[in-house]
């Protein structure tokens, strides 16, 4: 594995996050390297999903949520007052825990982002839909079912569709919040294979409660506990020779 030590794609510096009086993230700092899969692991409630949602400012939607510190995308602060949040979210796509396609046709789901951002129309839009569905290996199976309601697809197809929907707006970064937790083992394996294909073109950050998954798919792993980022490093090292005793206890299954 070649460690690319250029400018980090995402850089988090001294991040504190509060839900009202509760501090959910405590002085988190990390760098996420371009075109690698970074996994965030840790027990439930450790703040890994919260951290993920600071990258595309989805925490803004939660009343009483306050962020101190900074996150930079390509060296530019995403919490700067003049930052366009809609544009930020276009560049940092998100795949959720439960597949959440819109109750629209397969085509309209994929075309949605391109339409709202005015990226394309007509034949160009058709091309985007085809490319995006092809990128998640759905095109051959669904090209004759583009008008079907997306809710009629299987769970795995729905989650792939959600990934295609994100790819259609050509983001730089893919955030995945436990993307396989609602899928069976076979579907999980195939989505993991898909991530390996996508990492050639995208920077991927995945939150997972499944340590084996983190070990299988990621190049870097960060371990979180009670709002703190305990350690982050190459996945191999975190799993075989962690620097922190707490990480060792967790990855060896002593708690969690």
């Amino acid at each position: 594995m070649s460690a690319n030590r250029a400018v980090p794609k995402l850089c988090v510096q001294g991040l504190d996050l509060y839900y009202g009086d509760f501090q959910a993230l405590i002085n988190v700092s990390l760098e996420i390297t371009e075109r690698r899969i970074t996994a965030l692991i840790g027990p439930s409630g450790c703040g890994k999903s919260t951290l993920l949602r600071t990258f595309n400012r989805m925490n803004d939607l939660i009343v009483g949520c306050k962020v101190v510190g900074d996150v930079e995308l390509d060296g530019r602060s995403i919490y700067a007052p003049n930052r366009n949040v809609d544009d930020l979210r276009k560049r940092i796509g998100m795949v959720f825990q439960r597949p959440n396609p819109f109750p629209l046709s397969v085509y309209e789901n994929v075309a949605y982002g391109a339409r709202i951002h005015g990226l394309a129309a007509g034949a160009a839009l058709d091309a985007i839909v085809e490319q995006s569905l092809a990128a998640v290996d759905l095109w051959s199976g669904l090209k004759d079912r583009l008008d079907d309601n997306a809710l009629t697809l299987s769970g795995e197809q729905q989650q792939r569709l959600c990934i295609a929907r994100v790819l259609a707006v050509e983001p730089d970064v893919l955030l995945m919040d436990e993307p396989c937790s609602a899928l069976d083992p076979v579907a999980t394996m195939r989505v993991e294979e898909l991530m390996q294909e996508l990492v050639d073109r995208y920077t991927i950050v995945i939150v997972t409660h499944n340590m084996q998954q983190a070990a299988r798919v990621s190049q870097d792993t960060g371990f979180m506990l009670l709002g703190e980022l305990v350690e982050i490093g190459p996945t191999n090292q975190v799993f075989t020779s962690p620097r922190d005793q707490r990480t060792e206890d967790y990855v060896s299954g002593r708690f969690g």
């Binding site: 959440n100 982002g113 709202i116």
Partner: peptide, 27 residues
């Protein structure tokens, strides 16, 4: 209308009004 529809739309960079008009109202 499930919250997850709104989240999906906003996470794609849609504005609140786009989300209402194109996702929430149809749903």
């Amino acid at each position: 209308v499930p919250r997850s529809y709104r989240e999906a739309s906003l996470a794609l960079g849609a504005t609140q009004w786009q989300t209402i008009r194109r996702v929430v109202l149809p749903a």
